[in-house]
Computed example of a mutant assay.
Amino acid sequence: MTIRNNLTLAALTLSAAVLPLLAHAAGEPMHNHSAHASASAGQTAPAADFTEGEIRKVNKATGKLTIKHGEIKNIQMPPMTMVFEVADKAMLDGVKEGDKVKFKAKQDGSKLIVTDIQR
């Protein structure tokens, strides 16, 4: 390799190491993929806190809720609107579109599941 190639390789390596740290310093969460893998491999994830949200859609046929929600800290999810499965379909009887709720959610593989909900 030439000196120029060595410098280019060193700059790319340094960028790959520094950019995630700069993103973290700017307030973006750092994702530790090995931590996610070990949590799904049987280790206990942090206890879920209640998250505030608004019910946008109730689908009793599929057992799913669409919720516009704040940050879900225990699964490191920023505020957004998305579809969740419910742990118990009876939960769907207690909510309707437009309800302001507090809920707990967990991630099970690729599924996001509401485990508790309060109006």
Rank of each mutant, 00 (worst) to 15 (best):
residue 44 T to C: 03
residue 44 T to I: 11
residue 94 G to S: 09
residue 113 I to N: 03
residue 54 E to T: 15
residue 65 L to H: 14
residue 117 I to T: 01
residue 73 K to P: 06
residue 26 A to K: 11
residue 110 S to F: 14
residue 47 A to D: 12
residue 104 K to G: 07
residue 52 E to M: 07
residue 87 A to G: 05
residue 106 K to N: 10
residue 62 T to R: 15
residue 66 T to I: 05
residue 65 L to F: 06
residue 29 P to N: 08
residue 90 A to G: 04
residue 102 K to L: 09
residue 10 A to W: 03
residue 48 A to D: 08
residue 56 R to L: 10
residue 91 M to S: 09
residue 79 P to V: 07
residue 62 T to K: 15
residue 87 A to Q: 14
residue 9 L to E: 02
residue 47 A to I: 11
residue 89 K to R: 15
residue 114 V to T: 08
residue 91 M to W: 10
residue 76 Q to R: 11
residue 61 A to W: 00
residue 79 P to H: 07
residue 106 K to F: 06
residue 53 G to T: 05
residue 68 K to S: 12
residue 38 S to A: 07
residue 115 T to D: 05
residue 41 A to Q: 00
residue 36 H to R: 09
residue 82 M to G: 10
residue 119 R to P: 08
residue 91 M to A: 07
residue 5 N to H: 12
residue 112 L to F: 11
residue 112 L to A: 06
residue 95 V to H: 01
residue 10 A to S: 05
residue 7 L to A: 03
residue 35 A to L: 10
residue 99 D to G: 04
residue 22 L to E: 10
residue 31 H to S: 12
residue 39 A to H: 07
residue 101 V to S: 12
residue 117 I to K: 02
residue 110 S to K: 13
residue 35 A to Q: 10
residue 95 V to A: 03
residue 96 K to W: 00
residue 92 L to M: 02
residue 57 K to A: 07
residue 84 F to R: 05
residue 4 R to G: 00
residue 100 K to I: 12
residue 103 F to K: 03
residue 106 K to Q: 10
residue 43 Q to K: 13
residue 1 M to W: 00
residue 84 F to E: 04
residue 3 I to P: 01
residue 77 M to A: 15
residue 9 L to A: 15
